[in-house]
Nucleic acid binder design. Sequence first.
DNA 1: CGCTGGCTTGATTCTATTCAATTTTCGTGG
DNA 2: CCACGAAAATTGAATAGAATCAAGCCAGCG
Lengths: 247, 247
Amino acid sequence: MNRSDAKTRLTTALGGPKLLGPPLFSVGNPARVHQLLTEDERARLSLIASVARFNKGDMLLRAGEPADAVYNVITGVVKSFAVEPDGSKTINGFLFTGDLVGLSDEGKYANSVEAVTAVTTYRLPVSKLESQLRKDAELEFHVICKLCEELRQAQRHAFIISRREAAVRVVLFLHLMEQMQADRGEPTNEIYLPMDRTAIGGFADLSLASVSRAFRKLTLDGVIAVRNRHHVVVRDRKAFDQLAALA
Amino acid sequence: MNRSDAKTRLTTALGGPKLLGPPLFSVGNPARVHQLLTEDERARLSLIASVARFNKGDMLLRAGEPADAVYNVITGVVKSFAVEPDGSKTINGFLFTGDLVGLSDEGKYANSVEAVTAVTTYRLPVSKLESQLRKDAELEFHVICKLCEELRQAQRHAFIISRREAAVRVVLFLHLMEQMQADRGEPTNEIYLPMDRTAIGGFADLSLASVSRAFRKLTLDGVIAVRNRHHVVVRDRKAFDQLAALA
DNA sequence: CGCTGGCTTGATTCTATTCAATTTTCGTGG
DNA sequence: CCACGAAAATTGAATAGAATCAAGCCAGCG
């Protein structure tokens, strides 16, 4: 349950840390996202990284605790959230393969992070990471690319929760999940939703009831089909895009 | 009106670009924000920077255009926004002295930026900045600090617009403005609001009418006093903090 | 087979939006 | 310095949509 239980060190090489994201300056590449790090950089980061595993529901880290490590997700999904004074959770985002977890604010974690599924990560101690970064401008540049990407994600999140209708927010959420899935190179005939409805509500800023109603409405309108709680298919792409105001 | 009209090159030294923000790793400093760049770094950046001035209402840059320069605000205030398909503007944030403007996404600006007041900036061509960054790990590290700060701001924004009551959103907005003012070292007996009510609504995701009603309610409740459209005083700090759920 | 947690559904309430009519403010030119 | 016109802000009435509360349902699991 706690960090030291969940973490196991592996000596096998998995290729090293990965950062997936769009490059900052290049334009018009075929694929939207790339591996931002070179083989060499990944190898160097491997030297300071250990592999940490977490079970579904485990906390990777808690907001306010000393930020002694950042995590690079290898497999699985985590959610980043803040616990409000009133006890409710605001979910900032879901993080997948190639994402970076554990940004700090004055030495303390800014958000709490919990495993949505079983998760494997690279654990990078900040002290070692910092010294690595300070002497490697190229590596840092790639980290900057990743941060810009996260910043855009945060703005996108703000955009989603600023829509008024629940169904629209859910469509935008589904669209985001679908796109991230495509970016990871996974098939997109079906949208995979590892998180539960409550977590979707936490992200889209909707009550559980509203999330449920939105799914029902979208299903009744023939926009989507829910195969089961974790798998959704877009049935009417035109209506879907229309709702998301993407077309 | 366009960029080349508004921009004027100055040979006088103003100290060079500044990045204000909290450091990433150090803890428990007296002041929350610092100048992140060393004198030396600022001097080096000055070599590739020109000074650009803009009048109130001028566009510094537009979303989707090729991102050929980033701007570092010296004086004045700008707002960063995205124009939605339906024509409405979502304001991502207001940027002040020491902030960085013009983050790009695959070589294009991610947001549009407009001057809220008269503004002076350092203009940093991305080509020169990129090569500068690639060979200066220390400088880059400081840029990373700034980006983390912006990321947290974006999350804070999402938090603000996720509140249900308009009055609470406005209080959170005022609190944010007050804190940024304090961070810049300005007096905080009064909160200065350079932007108009519509822009506040664009940021807090409220209609103009709701912003107006929220100000009226807060005034009637004795929480704040509005000296004029651009100056607000917190009259009842306890109630203010209570509304913001900060206490 | 029954339990538990996640989800669905309905009725009511609450709050922002919208639309529209005024009023205030501010910049400009006389 | 004042007057005017335009832009910004205020205010009201009606509407729409989500939250809340509460009850029931379903699936997975011992």
